[in-house]
Each structure stands twice: as C-alpha cells, then as structure tokens.
Amino acid sequence: MKTQAVTANLLVDGRVAFLTWEGDWSEKVEDSHVVTSNEEAEWLLDSAQRAVSAQVVIDPYLIEVSDSNGSAWPLSRREQIRAAGPTGTIDTAPDGLTAGLKQVA
C-alpha cells in the first residue's frame, strides 16, 4: 500500500506547500497529512481541490512519502528538492524562504 501526502504551490507566492492534518497548508513536508489507502488519498485530494476553488493553492497532487518516525519525507528526488530547496551551493535552511541566502562577503 502506498503512503501518500498532498502537495501543491500556494497561489499568492508560489511556495511549495503540503496539506496538513488540520486541513491547512504548511511549507514543511513533516507536517503532511499522511494516508495509506487509496480511498483516503482520494478524499485528501478532494479536500485539496476545495483550496483550489478558494484561490489558496494551484494544481494539488499526491506524492509518495516514507513515514518512518511520524514525519513524512518524499520518495522521489523531484519532491525531495521541492521539499528541501535546491541542492548545490545555495543554503536551504527549512525556513530559508525569506532571507537573502547567497550573500557575498
């Protein structure tokens, strides 16, 4: 059985977001509402669609995650990069979505 979560981008700023247990959207993949059956997954995606109609997110979709210690982590490289930010030299602290991360000394 697949372990899945729902991700999307926020309409206002395009940031990556994950649907949480509370039905909100979080920038942290660990906060994802994780489901393990197809029925639950469809239900989760349906509730995400309501956020599309409400102009909160764009194009939600299901991703496969591992859920070892109760905190979700995506399986695919693409989704890992979406969750954690670009690899390479640019610092990608989890909250690193605001500060100027690439200052020159």
Binding site: N9, D13, G14, V16, I81, G85
Partner: peptide, 12 residues
Amino acid sequence: LLNGLYLQLHAY
C-alpha cells in the same frame, strides 16, 4: 506566461 511568469518547483 505572456509576461514571463512561470510556476517552477519552488516558487514563481
């Protein structure tokens, strides 16, 4: 898109 605004992985 006509104004060069894409939605990429992390943001617009």
